[in-house]
Simulated assay, not measured.
Amino acid sequence: MKRLLTGLLLTLFWSNVAAAECRLNRLDVRNEQAQVRFVVELAVTPQERSQGLMFRESMPQRSGMLFIFDPPQPVAFWMKNTLIPLDMIFVDKTGLVTRVHKGAVPGDLTPIEGGDSVFAVLEINAGLAARYSIEPGTVMRHEFFSQGPAIWPC
């Protein structure tokens, strides 16, 4: 009986630890050089995606916005009405970074294309992609990536 109770408690403990690792407002990034956690806002609806980070004068370090496109699709971003320089990280459904655009210029109307099958885009302060060596091949962990064949599941 004692073993059964201990086993149940350990199972409960580890399931809570695993659940604590993934929250809608947190995203983890990992590669050979770094592992870092960002606090993210979600942009899931067309209205949220179209508003994005426009008109914001600043964003805390290690914060960002995660745009979700389900199903995956071709996407292009621009910086109209965006006041802060950003790095844009394009991700497939498994959580694999496929493209990184560093240093998007505030107010620039030039389209920034992410590819043909983009599931998510993480926007973070410009310079952080370089600081954390975020390049194609880097992986991300978030609940949205764990709904499919995630490389790094929750």
Rank of each mutant, 00 (worst) to 15 (best):
G127Y: 01
K2R: 11
L53W: 01
S63D: 01
S133C: 12
I68Q: 07
A150D: 05
P46Q: 01
G7R: 10
A20L: 12
T6K: 13
A43R: 03
P149T: 12
C22V: 15
V75N: 04
M54S: 13
C22M: 00
R30C: 02
G107S: 06
W78M: 07
R26I: 04
Q147M: 12
G137W: 08
L24W: 02
T110D: 09
L27F: 09
Q73N: 10
P60W: 05
L8I: 05
R30G: 10
E123Y: 03
V44I: 13
G127T: 14
K2Y: 12
P71D: 11
S117H: 15
M1K: 14
L8E: 02
V29D: 05
D70R: 06
P153D: 07
M54P: 04
I89G: 00
D87Y: 15
L5G: 03
V17I: 12
F77L: 02
E41N: 00
M1P: 08
G52W: 03
V40H: 04
T45S: 14
I84H: 05
T6W: 15
L53H: 03
R26W: 13
V44T: 01
L27T: 02
D116F: 14
G103R: 09
V39G: 00
L12M: 03
K2I: 10
N31A: 08
